[in-house]
Design a binder for these strands. Structure first.
Lengths: 351, 351
DNA sequence: TTGTAAGCGTTATCAC
DNA sequence: GTGATAACGCTTACAA
């Protein structure tokens, strides 16, 4: 036998207080006498009363609902990163008492239209932006309208854009990751560590390359170093092709901008190197693939990033002074996950 | 200069009609004179008016919001499937005018608590369930309360459970997929095709195994067939180990229950087979990994599944008679994606 | 066909 | 500290 869904009123008259004594217990507990408060709380507990989000939203114009675009990254293999981010964000939002609404859009322009919709129709309280790029109109659009948001990924790009970019964002220090990866290979005996990255003018890609360059600076003559970097589109076969180039240039190890590239490089080197010599390859993003084949990889602190983004957003939404909350701009350090390649059976004739 | 957010009232008096003429235009267009309707629609367009979801929800007790749990499948490599499902569902929901809210839960029990919350507090209209298993309480719980929902995955398990399972679900015919995969290998010259699957009593796993068994039935003596099946936990190394077993039993090709297993089998066979002979392995789920290494794989029609689930749910929510809508229970056929393994550089000494 | 009135459940403002 | 009154923006009878 299920009782009818209780409301503030029905609950109030059931225990003989007025409606906003109950409301106060929920929203301004200190205004209500402890004894009464206790009684009300017990009644709430027993009745299973839940405040109506709709009514609350109508009154307060806040929905306790956050929005995020689900991008259809065709890449897939690296999509795992956004997948983990979404997970972490869902949990963080839930813990903070917010709901998370998903939307999709073909491009940034369409995303703005969707945001506009959600803002006006559903009173979303804020948004999480991902994958911001140089020519990103979204941040400016949201700032103009005073819509709370936070970005996963620091603002990139040249010129005045970065000056205006004083909005909240969290990013991962890709350079530190590739730097550590490079040192790992150097320490393990490689002299010439190459870098296998993406074509230039890609924010995160350039960032990752720079970490390698910095770690190698001074160890090899610039001319040599130059030959040790290759760029390829983010696929496994392209990674294999580029790895061949690097090998020809004398690379003894390869730091990669992604696990896709690393998988290609790894597979190529495995067959190209003399039997018994394991390829020295490090990937980026620590995707399941890397774990699957036992590939060392730079692991982004995705969960921490999501939590921080949520914290920043929640603080903003709370209306408390900006300078008292969590740092609105934060660069997190990645971790290097070191693995030994699985021996998936060994080569024939090698025991 | 941004005008203040228009409401039904402000809009109505701006064009000199009553509030619910406007309301009628939106909800019962046929009740309003074409000329007036036109005028109202234009005003809506110009003012950028959007009905308030909160007010509407408060009045109608419908939120136009659907819920789905984001599972934290630790597997990762196969998580890509749910990722694609979520994408497709987000888009389908959006097209149908619904929003999609995400939640997370540690287990089914906690999920029910979350659903209860969302139901009472936020008036969610329906839910999409995934990964239903034999001892699934969730469907019964929702049915008891008359909450609309649809399941991705058919009800499994023995006994009366299946009899009561007359709720909407969509599933993919895994057996058809492995059957096709088996025939692919048979056609390509293999005589003894083995199956590398998961431990028994796993719904989808058993389904996939049965497809292979059916395709092989009669081609080999039962005793021999029995040796050609192996079970392993869903990881790459476990797949490699099991593949070795199958090879020893004389398997010339391997159909796998997942791409993780297939990747392991592929990697093992690649080194174990004589140079020049490509491993005959087929995976399942057509994940990015399979595409990455050029592995044939069974592709589930995820997008179609999501669309159908959305259609079923939308129909239910529309209140139209059950028997006029899309089929509430549907098994979709997977497709076999045939690939040739990339030659990632060839073996040394082989040109 | 259009307008009038009531109410959905909550919070804010103000008296008591 | 507590209780009445008035919105918030919309839909749905019902009356004109």
């Amino acid at each position: 036998m299920v009782r009818k869904k209780p409301t503030l009123v029905s609950l109030a008259e059931a225990i003989g207080v007025s409606r906003q004594t109950v409301s106060n217990v929920l929203n301004n507990p200190e205004r209500v006498k402890p004894a009464t408060r206790e009684r009300v709380l017990r009644a709430i507990e027993e009745s299973g009363y839940r405040p109506s989000a709709a009514a609350r939203q109508l009154r307060t114009r806040r929905s306790m609902d956050l929005g995020m675009r689900l991008r259809s990254e065709a890449d897939g293999i690296n999509g795992a990163v956004m997948d983990r981010f979404l997970h972490a964000l869902t949990e963080a939002a839930q813990e903070a008492g917010y709901r998370l609404t998903l939307y999709s859009a073909a491009d940034d322009e369409e995303e703005l239209a969707r945001i506009d919709d959600l803002l006006h129709a559903a009173d979303l309280d804020g948004f999480v932006l991902t994958g911001s790029n140089a020519a990103d109109r979204r941040a400016a659009w949201l700032q103009d309208r005073g819509v709370p948001f936070a970005c996963f990924g620091r603002p990139r790009g040249a010129g005045p854009a970065s000056a205006a970019a004083d909005y909240p964002w969290v990013d991962v220090d890709g350079a530190a990751g590739t730097g550590a990866a490079t040192r790992l290979l150097l320490d393990s005996g490689c002299q010439a560590v190459g870098f296998l990255g993406w074509p230039p003018d890609n924010g995160p890609g350039d960032d990752r390359r720079s970490g390698w360059l910095q770690a190698m600076a001074g160890l090899l003559p610039p001319a040599k170093l130059n030959g040790l970097q290759a760029a390829a589109e983010d696929t496994v076969p392209a990674g294999a092709v580029a790895a061949r180039l690097l090998l020809e240039q004398g690379a003894e190890g390869v730091v990669c901008a992604s696990d896709s590239l690393a998988l290609g490089a790894f597979a190529y080197l495995r067959t190209a190197l003399p039997p018994g010599r394991q390829p020295a390859v490090v990937g980026f993003d620590d995707t399941p693939v890397a774990a699957a084949i036992g590939l060392s990889s730079v692991s982004q602190p995705i969960t921490a990033a999501a939590r921080h983004i949520m914290a920043v957003l929640a603080h903003r939404l709370s209306g408390r002074p900006e300078d008292q909350g969590p740092r609105p701009q934060l660069v997190l350090e990645p971790a290097l996950v070191i693995r030994t390649p699985y021996n998936l059976g060994g080569r024939p004739g090698k025991g």
